[in-house]
């Protein structure tokens, strides 16, 4: 509960900090990217603070590179 409030507070702070100058300079595309990133941040933040079960982020590295590593080590044993 407090964690989510904190996350929202941080997001609001970030928006207050950056958005005005973007809007002033009429950077539309930038605002879009900005919002998407914030959305991802919000989603991740909520997920983590609610202790949802998320797979460790480096799992995909293991999946992709396991065959190569095994081959390399096998070669050098």
């Amino acid at each position: 509960m407090w964690a989510i409030a904190g996350i929202i507070a941080v997001i609001i702070a970030i928006i207050m900090f950056e958005a005005p100058s973007l809007r002033r300079k009429q950077l539309r595309k930038e605002l879009w990217v900005f919002s998407i990133l914030l959305l991802i941040g919000f989603g991740l933040g909520v997920a983590i603070s609610l202790h949802m079960k998320l797979p460790p982020a480096l799992d995909w590295i293991i999946v992709i590179y396991k065959p190569l590593t095994d081959a390399l080590i096998g070669l050098l044993k």
């Binding site: 702070a13 207050m16 900090f17």
Partner: peptide, 14 residues
């Protein structure tokens, strides 16, 4: 002004 306020807020939080 809002920029300064946001900054101060950020600092306090940090």
């Amino acid at each position: 002004k809002t920029r300064k306020l946001a900054l101060i807020l950020l600092f306090v939080v940090l």
